[in-house]
Design a protein around this nucleic acid. Structure first.
Lengths: 128, 128
DNA sequence: TTATCATTTTCGCAAATGTAGAAACAAATG
DNA sequence: CATTTGTTTCTACATTTGCGAAAATGATAA
């Protein structure tokens, strides 16, 4: 069932020569197509992997808000809030609108929020 | 347009009293319903926010694999690989199957992989 | 102009986090 | 028994991170 190839290079990083070399090669080849994108995808999820930022996204899902309002919702300083907003704006998730001294943020894409809510449901299903 | 309420508590964490107190209260109330779940959701995304783990998921999307094969695909030690596998198994994403000395891992839910591939497409759309 | 206000940015740090190595351990095999 | 495969614990290291403090920006008001 398990083909332990005789042509294993002893210099391999993994010392256990248990693997199916052909299978590994095939999967490496398949992965190589997506490999470039994976760091981007990881960065995408990293940005989502923070309760404060998720709160911001859910809050903006309700309504456009100024930085100060968001800061109050989060009970956080405006500087810290602004920092988080910037990171998400850079990711393309948020848009800003200047109005005098105030700056208003809103979701750029409603799809993101939908995805979040969908994932919340998946999560609940997992936990049952 | 902006209602600056007179009943602002001067002890507020945020020093700028620019906010629409009613709006903030309303949004806080709405968020409070989801607030409990948000740390879980963040943990979910944190686990996805790593290129190595994403590689594992995509690899297992192709085929069930033993730890050693996965380690070779990742070019990582079996110990490190096993650690990552454990974290994802704990999250409920993977299942393991013992077969003699070998241990095989597979995706528990195909939905996760579908979601990943969907998010990859969203990402590509964003970047255009 | 000067002052004030909302926000942004820079700097920097303390704390948290994550990754993975080494080695001990477990379980299966021969 | 010795090997093999995988897991776990302990550990150390580097990196990341979130955020405070304070200066800077840019708009508005006096």
């Amino acid at each position: 069932m398990k083909k332990v190839s005789s042509q294993i290079n002893p210099d391999e990083a993994c010392k256990t020569p248990c693997f199916d070399q052909d299978k590994v090669a095939a999967i490496k080849s398949i992965l190589s197509e997506e490999e470039e994108r994976l760091p981007e995808l990881a960065a995408f999820y990293k940005l989502l992997g923070n309760t404060t930022r998720l709160k911001i996204l859910f809050a903006l899902g309700e309504s456009e808000l100024c930085v100060c309002d968001i800061a109050h919702v989060l009970e956080l300083s405006t500087a810290a809030t602004s920092h988080q907003l910037k990171s998400m704006r850079q990711q393309g998730w948020l848009r800003k609108r200047d109005d005098g001294k105030m700056v208003y943020y809103r979701l750029h894409s409603i799809n993101l929020l939908k995805a979040l809510k969908g994932d919340l449901k998946i999560l609940e299903a997992q936990l049952r």
